[in-house]
Write a protein that binds this DNA or RNA. Sequence first.
DNA 1: AATGAATGAGGATTCATTCAT
DNA 2: TATGAATGAATCCTCATTCAT
Lengths: 223, 223, 223, 223
Amino acid sequence: MPKPTFSNIAPEKRERVLKEAARLFATRGFAETDMAELASRAAVSKGSLYDYFESKEDLYLSVCRDALARSRRAVYGGIKPDWDLYRQIDHIFRKGAAFARANPEYVRMYLNVSASGMEQFADKLTRDVEGYTADHLKALLRQGIQDGIVRSDVDVNLAAFLINSVYIIFLASLVSRHYQIRMKEYLEIASRIDARSATEQLDKVILTIERFLKPAQTRQETA
Amino acid sequence: MPKPTFSNIAPEKRERVLKEAARLFATRGFAETDMAELASRAAVSKGSLYDYFESKEDLYLSVCRDALARSRRAVYGGIKPDWDLYRQIDHIFRKGAAFARANPEYVRMYLNVSASGMEQFADKLTRDVEGYTADHLKALLRQGIQDGIVRSDVDVNLAAFLINSVYIIFLASLVSRHYQIRMKEYLEIASRIDARSATEQLDKVILTIERFLKPAQTRQETA
Amino acid sequence: MPKPTFSNIAPEKRERVLKEAARLFATRGFAETDMAELASRAAVSKGSLYDYFESKEDLYLSVCRDALARSRRAVYGGIKPDWDLYRQIDHIFRKGAAFARANPEYVRMYLNVSASGMEQFADKLTRDVEGYTADHLKALLRQGIQDGIVRSDVDVNLAAFLINSVYIIFLASLVSRHYQIRMKEYLEIASRIDARSATEQLDKVILTIERFLKPAQTRQETA
Amino acid sequence: MPKPTFSNIAPEKRERVLKEAARLFATRGFAETDMAELASRAAVSKGSLYDYFESKEDLYLSVCRDALARSRRAVYGGIKPDWDLYRQIDHIFRKGAAFARANPEYVRMYLNVSASGMEQFADKLTRDVEGYTADHLKALLRQGIQDGIVRSDVDVNLAAFLINSVYIIFLASLVSRHYQIRMKEYLEIASRIDARSATEQLDKVILTIERFLKPAQTRQETA
DNA sequence: AATGAATGAGGATTCATTCAT
DNA sequence: TATGAATGAATCCTCATTCAT
């Protein structure tokens, strides 16, 4: 909830503020981000920042909401409703990974919301963020079972939970130092994780999810 | 690396410092934790804290290392080497969940290391933390394949990565507000996640992992 | 000295600005009053405020002068020149108290001028405010002595000073938290000071002043 | 309620802080006083100020309480319990005036508490300050009536209220620009109010109070 | 005459760390 | 080894005033 002033200013300025805020919050974290530095990077005055947002918290929340909208557009925007579960999962994972590579700051900010001291933001953001994805995945799974392309003994809620967990950790592995190191340790990758190696792993992950979901006969056909 | 002084003081004081530090860091996060408050909670003087540790960073790192040792003991301590993969996974997940419920501060600190601004700690901790688990899981998987209790088409590294990812997210869901809300959204749990409902979900998760790993015939036998 | 612009605008707007300024200055004090808040309460733009007045100081001064004119009209307006001292004092005290109850903000602003940091305003306002009252009271006292209704041994200047002092403190006791508490402590009033109890005390104050001024024989007659 | 630290530091430093705080608060007022300037004047660091006091408010309150104790000691300290009303009033007014001349900052701070925005301080200080004086004056008046040195038709509470009102305004006239100008206007004093002219007026004020309180016969004897 | 976005100096408060005792 | 007073840079936020429209 930015102040009304924020919608009155030049769109480029608005973009600049949101973008630099995301970059800084994603680099330093909420507590360590300095409003003065943010203002100077966004080429606005400190005072203006407070004309646009009630507080640092409000700014953070606004950036998160903006990030959410953007990522949803980027990941879910191109989906055709008639695509089946597997095509949609493939699309979501690939667009998600591409988005994470192009906008690592947004994924970092997502991860930060699970850190200590960020509960206030989780309370205001998480249900919104996760509810959408959860509903989407569950609907797809249910339809998949109905259509016979998903094993009927799959627990829809748990499967959605697990698929999204893998999604989160995979994206996190593209943007957070900790998860990067971890992924390299697990997948025995020596070099920096570049687009190529990321895609390579992504292929395997998607395949694994499919194999896990498809009914026995279907799987054999695929193999 | 605490200073030598830290090993000379009374063990109860040492415990108190580590415990209160973990609690505070896990509640507030690194940046927001106040050394003065920490000192007062641990009933030592601010000066003493700096007699024991080089800096706030050093203290944080020491607490993390201590936490790692404790959690490893709690989770891997009771494992008999001759247990097979499934028995070990069951043990690890259950002990891990119990540990997370008993010591949420340690899991929270783990999560914090993936947040922005914590890269310095990830660089010093992550490989250690993850390497051990990764090696253990991979060895088990390899042995499992050799013994014919794990599907031979499983990619060992990726499977270890995925199993551990699920483990992390599950524990996170027991201690972090964000992941709690998320889990409740996915698994459609209305009430607080208590020991009972956590175990219930855990059973399903463990079962799902098994089903995913076991060769077709084995799975059919199980069913 | 508002700018000429201020006399060109709609009278209702002029009133609104003066009234809201008085209310806010009287509530927060000069330093703590925010020109932005004032503008929004008066439903004018911040820019307009500076079209009407040179500065915050100028606005404050203007409000004080306006308050002075209003209070003089309210208190001295209804006096007939042929009334004697006692009738006029009675009238002044009662109209003054009524004015204070109806417009506490003006009396509060008067009190504020004696606070630290307000010397600039005292220099510009006090002589004006006090000179008028002093002259009036002294003239009345002199006439009273001449007419034999005031003790001849009364020091006119000091008596005027004391009468007005009592007047000030009494009005202050109707509008300022500090003087309210003080009055309740002295006069042992338990409840809020309402119109009834204020009038009751006022009667006694006026009577006391009369008794103090009247020559011995006159006083006995009165008793 | 300063923090315990404040009682641990060197007494000279403690005095310095209280004294410079009183000076600055009395010069600028609460809102306009800068903690940084105060720290530098008291030759302590800004941080230390916050080791001694919870906040600016706490510091202000502490200075007021200290001022109250000092002024009470200065004014009421030398009184012998067997002195009669008139001797005590004479003593109080003269010591009060001397104290105000020697420590104008304390009287200014008293006046500030009645200004807008200072209600929080009035709530915490006024009853204490005024209760003591009120009780003292009322007891003296009651005793005076009993002893036949005070007119029996005097309303004790109101008389105490009025005497103290005159006391307040008189002291205020020694320290506040506004009340100084006002006094000069009323008493037609052209020059600065120095010790001599102040004492001169004080004599008259005390005499007037006496004349107002003494029974008719006594008064005639006095005259 | 009116608007409201923009500015940046200013001000309260915090906190890691030091050091004399 | 223990203490806790001292420091001052750092940081969030405010606000009088200006000025382009």
